[in-house]
Design a protein around this nucleic acid. Structure first.
Length: 491
RNA sequence: GGCGCAUUCGUCUAGCGGCCCAGGACACCGCCCUCUCAAGGCGGAGAUCAGGGGUUCGAAUCCCCUAUGCGCUACCA
């Protein structure tokens, strides 16, 4: 039975997928992998007007970035293709014709104007809004006439006007709708393309989809789909409607909520593993305390009974925290590789290319300070710069005089002229100097930090100096001395 | 307006009748560590379990009503 499990992610290339979208893909993928089933990707490109160039590539890139692989679909093929709905038109046409022949569907010649008027009328009268069934009872003669005139038409499904449609949802249990309250929805648009409803039912059947896991926004469509299955004589799949993901304003996620595309998260410095871990927690939980977990744990434990019902609000702060957790869990190689693309993008061109061996030594120093990999350039620029820019006034720490500061710098320059540039050695040396100079470590190291990094915040001083090396530290100390005594215009 | 779904700390959540006068995490506050910033450790504040009725010896957990939020209500998905 497990091997019959086939689920799909069926994005519409009308834009780039956002978090909610990808979360649905993630859940389907986890479900398939957990049960040893198949995960299929199908592109629902039936809306020619909203088709967005590059969207398919963006969707696929996003999945790949997150390491979500598919068994059938674009690029990999499969036994039930094609996997683009725009290449499957005859199948929908055939289904629609069959339904018309059976009396379960009919051609509708209503103009958009008439539809709009009817809707406005319904709104005015506070009636249920929906297609009024005008064309449902056209006589054969009327239809022949309309056809002869070449009137454009759509195909509508004839919903039963009595009875109820019941769904046993895998996540929401039993839900039912009175059929008379569901209107005759469109199956085939006037351009000959199917609507989502017809296409999804036809393809899920043809592709042997066993479980449909989709966002809750589709719950209202379930009775339509169930009725279509009935009319077509197909056994329906099992449904599970996943909780939605809302923006901070509690509204459905959209462009207004910042980063829309999953790929933007990559550019913003999030790690795929962190994002995936964060997303799995949006509507699913392992237990009462485990949040950070490797993919293997998710795979092993992902079951629908642990998927929740309430919609979740997407909290970027927690995502950032988790990203930091993942960054801290990387070794120097991994972190360096993650930082490199951001450095190449953000560092001034003259500082490129970055020496990877050097980066390998820098990475551990910033590891526990990075929340986003995109902060790499900001946080490490002074490692690459010839001479960091800063206001010399910063060298003089609160409670120190300019003379003291200059003396401290000169002392250090001398001290380090021949010193072994290893953190423990530097620390011993400089702590002793701090005492000799009668300066608190806070002040003394504060001055040195400015001189060496050009900042008031950096990784631990001695480690930083070790990585920078004498060849970079010595000139910076000299520059600081010069700046302090006004001997140099630099600054 | 109609239909549907949902409702536990600000947020993500644990809880599927007694272990809960509700546990964990993010964020927040304090202390410790400390050369700065982080990270880390410890502690704190924060939820009358939306409200009201039931059922039960016993309810966050089951039922009903109300309220609120969200979704759908397109020849979009």
């Amino acid at each position: 039975m497990a091997n019959d499990i086939r689920v799909r992610y069926a994005p519409s290339p009308t834009g780039l997928p956002h978090i909610g979208n990808i979360r649905t893909a993630l859940f389907n993928w986890l479900f398939a992998r957990h049960h040893g089933g198949k995960f299929i990707v199908r592109i629902e490109d039936t809306d020619r007007e909203r088709l967005t160039p590059g969207a398919v590539e963006g969707i696929l890139d996003g999945l790949e970035w997150l390491d979500i692989d598919w068994d059938e679909g674009p690029g990999v093929g499969g036994d039930y293709g094609p996997y683009f709905q725009s290449e499957r038109l005859p199948r929908y046409q055939e289904a629609a014709n069959r339904l018309i022949g059976q009396g379960d569907a009919y051609r509708c010649y209503c103009t958009r104007e008439r539809l709009a008027r009817a809707r406005a009328e319904q709104e005015r009268n506070k009636q249920a809004i929906g297609y009024d069934g005008y064309c449902r009872n056209l006589t054969d003669e009327q239809r022949r006439e309309l056809e002869a005139e070449g009137t454009p038409s759509v195909v509508r499904f004839a919903m039963p006007d009595s009875g109820v449609t019941q769904l046993h949802d895998l996540i929401r249990d039993d839900v039912e709708w009175r059929n008379e309250l569901v209107d005759d929805f469109v199956l085939i648009k006037s351009d000959g393309f199917p609507t989502y409803h017809l296409a999804v039912v036809t393809d899920d059947h043809l592709m042997r989809i066993s479980h449909v896991l989709r966002a809750e926004e589709w719950l209202s469509s379930a009775p339509r789909h169930l009725q279509l299955y009935r009319a077509l004589g197909y056994p329906p799949p099992l449904y599970g409607h996943l909780p939605m993901i809302l923006g901070p304003d509690r509204a459905k996620l959209s462009k207004r909520h910042g980063a829309t595309s999953i790929l933007e998260y990559r550019d913003d410095g999030y790690l795929p593993d962190a994002l995936r871990n964060f997303m799995v927690l949006l509507g699913w939980s392992l237990d009462d305390k485990t949040e950070v977990m490797p993919i293997a744990t998710m795979l092993e434990n992902f079951t629908l009974d642990r998927v929740g019902k309430p919609a979740a609000i997407f909290d970027r702060e927690k995502l950032s925290w988790m990203n930091g957790v993942y960054i801290r869990g990387m070794d120097a190689e991994e972190l360096a590789d993650a930082m490199l693309p951001h450095l190449n993008r953000d560092l001034p061109a003259e500082l490129l290319p970055v020496d990877r061996d050097y980066l390998l030594r820098i990475a551990p120093l910033v590891r526990e300070r990075l929340k986003l990999v995109s902060e790499s350039a900001d946080m490490t620029a002074y490692f690459f710069e010839e001479q960091p820019e800063y206001d010399p006034a910063n060298l003089v720490q609160r409670g120190m005089t300019q003379e003291e500061t200059a003396a401290a710098l000169r002392n250090t320059a001398e001290n380090l002229a021949t010193a072994d540039f290893a953190a423990p050695v530097l620390e011993e040396l400089l702590r002793a100097a701090s005492e000799e100079l009668g300066l608190t470590p806070r002040r003394f190291f504060g001055t040195l930090r400015w001189a060496v990094t050009g900042r008031n915040v950096s990784p631990p001083l001695f480690e930083t100096m070790e990585v920078l090396g004498r060849e970079r530290v010595a000139p910076r100390l000299q520059a600081a001395i010069d700046r302090l005594s006004g001997n140099s215009g630099a600054g």
